[in-house]
């Protein structure tokens, strides 16, 4: 199998690490070679963060480069726009339809781009979901990332059971049920 390239992009603190670890666990359980690359430290403090997951027969480079991503999972729409050019021509862009203003926008030094999702749809295969609102309906706005992951899962070759098993092994024990519900909500959309 050709190496599968996945990127998870978002704002520091949105849970990109948890999501990439679920993906990494899934790939190794399925018997693949896998590499993940994460961001820690200062860059994580509310900044733009990107995590890479690569799996297949034999993975060398731990990062995904421009034009190589099969799937980009974006937890925030400006970050989807920032990294969209990393997608392959036929890649899938999963976007949380959620806006977090970066500081240059907060202080009026820059404008938040308008119609991001509409514009991305003109060039890419976009699958958008307002996961933050969906998560609030489930009673915990912080599990939005599992909803987005559920949407992304439909573009990958793992069974729903495989996903459930690895989620159970990755998230804190007390949060297994809510995370599985969130994943299912995304998967069912």
């Amino acid at each position: 199998m050709a190496v599968k390239n996945i990127m998870i992009v978002g704002v520091g603190g949105q849970g990109t690490l948890l999501t990439s670890r679920i993906l990494g666990g899934l790939a190794i359980e399925a018997g693949y070679d896998v590499k993940l690359s994460e961001v820690h430290g200062m860059a994580q403090r509310g900044g733009s963060v990107v995590t890479f997951v690569r799996y297949g027969e034999n993975v060398h480079e731990p990062i995904v480069e421009e034009g190589q991503a099969d799937i980009i999972i974006a937890f925030e729409k400006l970050e989807a726009l920032r990294y969209a050019h990393f997608l392959k021509k036929d890649g899938a862009l999963i976007v949380n339809d959620w806006r977090i203003d970066p500081m240059p926008v907060v202080i009026g030094a820059a404008e938040y781009p308008v119609d991001i999702i509409e514009n991305l749809e003109k060039e890419y295969n976009v699958f958008s979901v307002n996961a933050t609102e969906e998560a609030k309906k489930l009673g915990n706005s912080r599990v939005f990332n599992l909803i987005v992951l559920g949407v992304a899962a439909k573009h990958m070759d793992f069974t729903q059971q495989q996903w459930h098993d690895v989620i159970k092994n990755t998230v804190p024990p007390k949060t297994v049920d809510i995370n599985i519900s969130a994943f299912n909500a995304g998967y069912g959309l």
Partner: peptide, 27 residues
């Protein structure tokens, strides 16, 4: 890998241009 391809083989990256978007520095 792209930097090495470019430097040694002279190959350019085949990808769309990045969008012009506001930065998101750490805060």
């Amino acid at each position: 890998a792209n930097i090495i391809r470019k430097a040694i083989l002279g190959e350019d990256v085949d990808a769309a241009q990045p969008a012009q978007v506001p930065g998101r520095p750490p805060i």
